[in-house]
Design a protein around this nucleic acid. Structure first.
Length: 473
RNA sequence: GUGGAUGUAGUUCAGUCGGUUAGAACGUCGGAUUGUGGUUCCGAAAGUCGUGGGUUCGAGCCCCAUCUUCCACCCCA
């Protein structure tokens, strides 16, 4: 007896219903990306490990899936190498490749590699799976899809504005309530300088990031535990107290506090400009300037953005920021980029829990033609062609079995209409139609079929699904 | 990576103190109805109790290991 087949921890199969819902999400996101002039690219699932290592911090390096070299991966090892018991060192000897951890770093690599073909500013979107060797939890998978949208080769804050508009429009089109949090790494750097410990910015931001969750006292403990002195902690506290103020007041306050710290001031300037621009456009989502927003990825240098669902607590559903020197690591300095990444799997979970999918699963068959046997099939195929030419999703039941079973197939697939063409109908050049939700059925002539489609089937479809270039025979 | 919970028909769950043949609902399949689904009625199939060891006369239940899922850290979409 063989054991049941299974898939690796943290990975999932997607059923047909799930895929329809997932595609709905991807389609909506893509539509918005294109609307703002972004174009798609794809990169390989695996990258050279040298491309990936060191880009996500120590923690990130641990979470990289490494791919064992093909063939006899031990043959190139010396006896000294064999004695290495530290996994990091050994794995770098026997693994040259790894699965990508996100889409931003491969994108930076892509930009550097194809710099001569690219027109800057380069606006690209990319929707592909990424892998992390994390311990799975709810809303946390080892394989999941990111939908990245980035613009590289432009310093303008207009790009930040555009990304926020995109975020807003994506979540509006999906009917997901979203709160957009904004901060700026330069402001955080300014705060670290103000506290007299500029080199501790990472520790400070990581601790501050937990402020909302664990409160100031615990954050203080963590800072203290990291070896940050009391005076610095006091300084940080004096700034963090501004969270009670409005966004505008926060900026005024910080501008005064950070007066002697050029980096911080620059961050304030960028935020002011962004908020000024945001006033000129219409945004549905709530936007907050959140001083405690840090984001772990250490390549961010300017704006940082994170989006949370206002209804379901599942961590961030979208996040990103500006990175000034990501391509520099690959040999192309001085190119700034900014982008965000939508977490399709978490957005799915949110929408699923809120039952936001009902309206969207209209992608399955709309008309089932019942199978009456070989003699009737020829007639049936003609009917199908007419329907499909009218852009109606139609199928013929492939086997000649009892009508009862064919209809219950339609029922379980939620097919709204059934057509029957048996001997009687064929002899009179007509067809019987049945509405599966009302149970109502009638015989119509073939000529009336077109009208039936227009009047009844179309009505059950949303306006959106009407094809732009409807071709009617 | 650290700590904790969980696993019983396809699904959601019962299963007493360790004691004979592990149950229910829903779903699935067949029939009532050979040109009519969704409702109704009748019937059936379905499980190596996650997996592998151990304790015991006897294990779904106790012990160990392992895997899965979930939760809290860490970190993150």
């Amino acid at each position: 007896m063989s054991s049941k087949p299974s898939i690796p921890k943290g990975t999932r199969d997607f059923s047909t219903e799930e895929m329809l819902k997932r595609e709905y999400i991807f389609e909506n996101i893509k539509k918005v990306f294109k609307l703002y002039g972004y174009q798609p690219i794809e990169t390989p699932a695996m990258e050279n490990l040298t491309t990936l290592l060191g880009k996500y911090g120590d923690e990130g390096d641990k979470l990289l899936f490494r791919i064992l070299n093909s063939g006899d991966f031990l043959s190139s090892l010396s006896n000294d190498d064999m004695a290495i018991l530290e996994y990091g060192k050994l794995s770098s000897k026997i693994c040259e490749k790894g699965l990508r951890y996100d889409l931003t770093v491969p994108f930076a690599r892509y930009v550097v590699q194809h710099r001569d073909e690219i027109v800057f500013p380069f606006k690209r979107y990319q929707i592909q799976p990424v892998w992390r060797a994390d311990r799975p939890q709810k809303g946390r998978y080892r394989e999941f899809f990111q939908c990245d949208v980035d613009v590289i080769g432009s310093d303008s804050i207009l790009n930040e504005l555009e990304l926020i508009q995109i975020i807003d429009q994506v979540f509006e089109s999906l009917k997901v309530g979203a709160q957009i949090k904004i901060n700026n790494r330069k402001v955080l750097a300014g705060i670290a300088e103000f506290a007299g410990v500029p080199e501790r910015i990472t520790d400070i931001t990581v601790a501050l990031d937990k402020f909302e969750k664990i409160g100031w006292d615990k954050v203080k403990e963590e800072l203290y535990g990291k070896g940050i002195n009391n005076k610095s902690i006091k300084d940080i506290e004096s700034i963090i107290n501004v969270i009670r103020l409005t966004d505008a007041e926060k900026l005024i306050f910080l501008r005064r506090i950070l007066l002697d710290f050029p980096i911080g001031l620059e961050g304030i300037k960028e935020l002011e400009e962004l908020f000024h621009l945001l006033e000129k456009v219409h945004i549905n989502s709530s936007i907050v300037f959140d001083l405690t927003l840090a984001r772990g990825l250490n390549y961010y240098t300017g704006a940082i953005i994170e989006v949370k669902s206002t209804d379901i607590n599942i961590g961030s559903i979208c996040g990103g920021g500006r990175y000034d020197n990501l391509t520099g690591i690959f040999g192309l300095p001085g190119v700034s980029g900014v982008g965000v990444s939508f977490g399709a799997d978490r957005i799915y979970d949110v929408m699923d829990q809120l039952n936001l999918f009902e309206k969207s699963n209209s992608s399955s068959t709309e008309v089932l033609l019942l199978n009456f046997g070989e003699a009737e099939t020829e007639y049936g195929l003609k009917v199908l062609r007419i329907l499909r030419n009218m852009n109606i999703r139609a199928e013929l039941y492939p086997d000649q079995i009892s009508l009862k079973k064919q209809m219950s197939y339609a029922n379980s697939k939620k097919i709204p209409f059934i057509l029957m063409a048996g001997e009687n109908e064929i002899n009179n050049n007509c067809i019987k139609v049945k509405n599966m939700s009302s149970g109502e059925q009638k015989v119509i002539s073939m000529k009336e079929l077109k009208k039936f489609v227009e009047n009844e089937i179309r009505q059950t479809k949303g306006i959106d699904s009407l094809p732009p270039n409807l071709k009617i025979l």
